[in-house]
Protein backbone atom coordinates (compact mmCIF):
# COMPACT_ATOMS: atom_id res chain seq x y z
CA UNK A 1 0.00 0.00 0.00
CA UNK A 2 1.40 3.41 -0.97
CA UNK A 3 2.30 5.68 1.91
CA UNK A 4 1.27 9.24 1.15
CA UNK A 5 3.60 10.79 3.72
CA UNK A 6 7.35 10.62 4.31
CA UNK A 7 6.84 11.21 8.01
CA UNK A 8 7.61 8.13 10.04
CA UNK A 9 6.77 7.54 13.66
CA UNK A 10 7.57 5.43 16.68
CA UNK A 11 4.10 5.38 18.18
CA UNK A 12 3.81 1.62 18.17
CA UNK A 13 7.09 1.20 20.07
CA UNK A 14 6.19 4.01 22.46
CA UNK A 15 2.81 2.43 23.19
CA UNK A 16 4.45 -0.84 24.11
CA UNK A 17 7.04 0.97 26.21
CA UNK A 18 4.21 2.65 28.10
CA UNK A 19 2.53 -0.38 29.61
CA UNK A 20 1.38 -1.80 26.29
CA UNK A 21 -1.05 1.05 25.83
CA UNK A 22 -3.74 0.11 23.33
CA UNK A 23 -4.56 2.15 20.24
CA UNK A 24 -8.00 2.78 21.74
CA UNK A 25 -6.46 4.17 24.95
CA UNK A 26 -4.17 6.49 23.00
CA UNK A 27 -7.11 7.57 20.84
CA UNK A 28 -9.15 8.43 23.94
CA UNK A 29 -6.25 10.37 25.45
CA UNK A 30 -5.85 12.61 22.40
CA UNK A 31 -9.55 12.76 21.49
CA UNK A 32 -9.54 11.00 18.11
CA UNK A 33 -10.94 7.76 16.73
CA UNK A 34 -8.97 4.51 16.96
CA UNK A 35 -8.94 4.43 13.15
CA UNK A 36 -7.04 7.71 13.11
CA UNK A 37 -4.39 6.32 15.48
CA UNK A 38 -4.08 3.26 13.22
CA UNK A 39 -3.76 5.49 10.13
CA UNK A 40 -1.03 7.58 11.80
CA UNK A 41 0.88 4.49 12.96
CA UNK A 42 0.77 3.01 9.46
CA UNK A 43 1.91 6.26 7.83
CA UNK A 44 -1.38 6.78 6.03
CA UNK A 45 -2.09 10.07 7.71
CA UNK A 46 0.10 12.93 8.93
CA UNK A 47 -1.51 14.47 11.98
CA UNK A 48 -1.71 18.19 12.59
CA UNK A 49 1.09 19.78 14.60
CA UNK A 50 -1.28 20.12 17.54
CA UNK A 51 -2.18 16.43 17.51
CA UNK A 52 1.50 15.53 17.15
CA UNK A 53 2.28 17.52 20.31
CA UNK A 54 -0.63 15.87 22.11
CA UNK A 55 0.74 12.42 21.23
CA UNK A 56 4.23 13.39 22.40
CA UNK A 57 2.74 14.72 25.64
CA UNK A 58 0.94 11.42 26.31
CA UNK A 59 4.30 9.62 26.12
CA UNK A 60 6.13 12.50 27.89
CA UNK A 61 8.82 12.61 25.20
CA UNK A 62 9.97 15.33 22.77
CA UNK A 63 8.23 15.52 19.39
CA UNK A 64 11.35 14.19 17.62
CA UNK A 65 11.09 10.95 19.57
CA UNK A 66 7.63 10.34 18.18
CA UNK A 67 7.88 11.61 14.61
CA UNK A 68 10.83 11.50 12.22
CA UNK A 69 11.36 13.05 8.81
CA UNK A 70 14.12 11.68 6.51
CA UNK A 71 16.90 14.10 5.54
CA UNK A 72 17.36 12.83 1.99
CA UNK A 73 14.96 13.03 -0.92
CA UNK A 74 13.78 9.66 -2.26
Amino acid sequence: MAKPTKVTNSIRALRFAHGEMTQAELADRIGVTRQTVIAIEQGRYSPSLEMAFQIARVFTVPLDDVFQYPDTEE
Binding site: G31, V32, T33, Q35, T36, A39, Y45, P47, S48, M51
Partner: peptide, 8 residues
Amino acid sequence: ADKEDERD
Protein backbone atom coordinates in the same frame (compact mmCIF):
# COMPACT_ATOMS: atom_id res chain seq x y z
CA ALA B 1 -21.30 7.44 15.97
CA ASP B 2 -20.61 10.76 17.67
CA LYS B 3 -16.86 10.68 17.08
CA GLU B 4 -15.45 12.92 14.39
CA ASP B 5 -11.86 14.05 14.52
CA GLU B 6 -9.57 16.22 12.37
CA ARG B 7 -8.86 13.34 9.95
CA ASP B 8 -12.59 12.83 9.34
